[in-house]
Design a protein around this nucleic acid. Structure first.
Lengths: 185, 185, 185, 185
DNA sequence: CACTAACCGAGACGGTACGTCCAGTCTTATA
DNA sequence: TATAAGACTGGACGTACCGTCTCGGTTAGTG
């Protein structure tokens, strides 16, 4: 009944924000500039995202897009595919930076934390599915603790992103999966 | 030749900073307030720590204290001891928050990154030592990738701290070490 | 053929606006809140009054009501009656505040200025009538400058309202009239 | 002991603010722009004046400068001189606007009210002095109510500034003084 | 014992983004 | 045409806090 939101604005803001984040990093995204660049009032941005950080979450979500669940039948291959995807997506320096900022922002703001968790949820769910499948088809131990296994996989990746800064290449992903699965069979 | 620094100030500042961090978290530590509370000029703070974050690092270092390298002869037990220590130290909510802030700050400032890495270094070194010992005494596979193994261990812990927010209790530490070692023997 | 305006809305809006003005002063009257409180769309308000300030003028006009022209035959008494009425109506703190805001708003907007002038017009006209009567019945000097005399009377009152904040009681009104008439006979 | 305020900044800010007020009026004075124009941080402005309005008061005070107390010996002449000065200073349209804005702002903010009152104080004091002198030298009635007399004089002027918008020329000043004194002798 | 370099308290300063607030206009669907 | 609902433009405000700088004054150790 009321005037509907202009969905074009949503897209334009997201696009411009993505661009700014890409180019100038987290601090380079300035809401004022963003609004001006898009040709939209600042309030229009804040109506959609209560905070700069919420906007950043949306941008990253868009970047991630849909994450499919691989099903080659080979548990190791499927997991490797997921971990490789994760590594590739998180490896670029600007992305590392964003993940770090969001982790910090999540620690400040409980509401944002929910959004951010959803963000990482997809790959986690994919891994869980693959692991469950592995257990049921007998390629993994029946008593495997899926939670802890995923913590090992995802944890190692985020650890390099956030703490050590070590490289995240496909080789690492392979070795990681291999190492984890060694004890999971 | 010149007037020496007042070492009492160092301690007083650290103590007050620790207190503020404890009570009100990262954002609650405001250099201006800190200086006033201690009865010290802001310059005195900045002469010692070039940045608020550097100060925070000092505080955390103090909290961590010396981390010993356990040597019971039982690799699993030693690793569990290390991981448990890590989990206990990182579990409290304020600490989680600080870790997150430092991760973000590290992403912004290369110099700080070095400091922060040193901070987490001790436990990492301890784990490396234990793993190496395990390899040499035959309790672990000779071709074990120590790096990746440590990423699994530490990674899982930091992952819960920074990303999922999941609990970090002794049970988790045990299961984690067990899971990792399953494939390492 | 077209849908007629709902006259109930006019009254309801005015009443609510008066209430808000009374309670929370000029800034406390927020059009958005007003509309929501009355259960009316903002458009409905703006269709009736082009501006928040126009609405305020309406409210004050309502407060003032009809101002009669006293005709006791005694010029001094009649003037005192008018000035007393003026003082009583402008004295309350919220009213002082509104007068000030309207003066400022009038300075910004020429259209509004006309409305506001009408607002104060009644008492001014009454005073002019009384003064003219006084001149024609000989109780006042024939060469009295009616304009300047009214400026002295009304001016003193508004001056206390807007500039000095001094009290406005009946005593002041009496003395004022007396002082002005002293030179007018 | 601490770093002293840069007095040049004070002057530069005042000058730029005066200029902006002169040219673009009250709303044309934008603190952000002002600071940029002067080459000073916004905080430096707000450190000196807690509010835009406080700054405006300073500017007007500067404009007014010192107001001398005339002492020709002729009460009427002296009063006329004061009132003329008042009228000339308040007559220009931008100034009328500023007076109105300050009156409104004073109604909102008690602290500011004090500043603004001081602003108009000088001429009021001058008039009081002249009136007192007139009483003591016998040129004015001994039982004259000085307060109310000044309200008539100043009130008439401000009334035209704020309420009627009528002209304020020297002729008006003369007639006003004459009218007021007519009853004061 | 004077000298000098570094320290110290106090607080001004530059810089900069944030999120808020509100007026008034516009759009859509409905009555 | 009026209405409810609420999106939208537009723009300034004042705040917050970091890290640097500039004073006047103090305190060693050195020559």
């Amino acid at each position: 009944m009321a005037r509907p939101r202009n969905t074009d604005s949503d897209a334009a803001i997201l696009a411009a924000a993505a661009d700014a984040l890409q180019r100038q990093g987290y601090d380079g995204l300035v809401v004022d500039e963003l609004a001006r660049a898009v040709g939209v009032a600042k309030t229009t941005v804040y109506r959609r995202w209560p905070t700069k950080n919420h906007l950043v979450v949306s941008v990253i979500a868009q970047w991630q897009g849909e994450v499919g669940i691989p099903e080659s039948g080979d548990t190791a291959a499927d997991l490797t595919s997921i971990v490789t995807g994760m590594a590739r997506s998180l490896d670029p320096a600007p992305m590392r930076r964003l993940v770090a900022e969001l982790a910090a922002a999540s620690a400040r703001d409980a509401d944002l934390r929910l959004q951010v968790e959803q963000l990482w949820q997809q790959r986690r769910a994919a891994a869980a599915t693959v692991l469950a499948r592995g257990i049921s088809d007998g390629s993994l131990r029946g008593d495997l603790d899926v939670e802890v296994t995923m913590d090992q996989l995802a944890g190692a990746v985020y650890y390099r992103v956030l703490i050590t800064g070590a490289v995240l290449d496909d080789g690492f992903a392979r070795e990681l999966v291999q190492g984890v699965l060694a004890g999971a069979r």
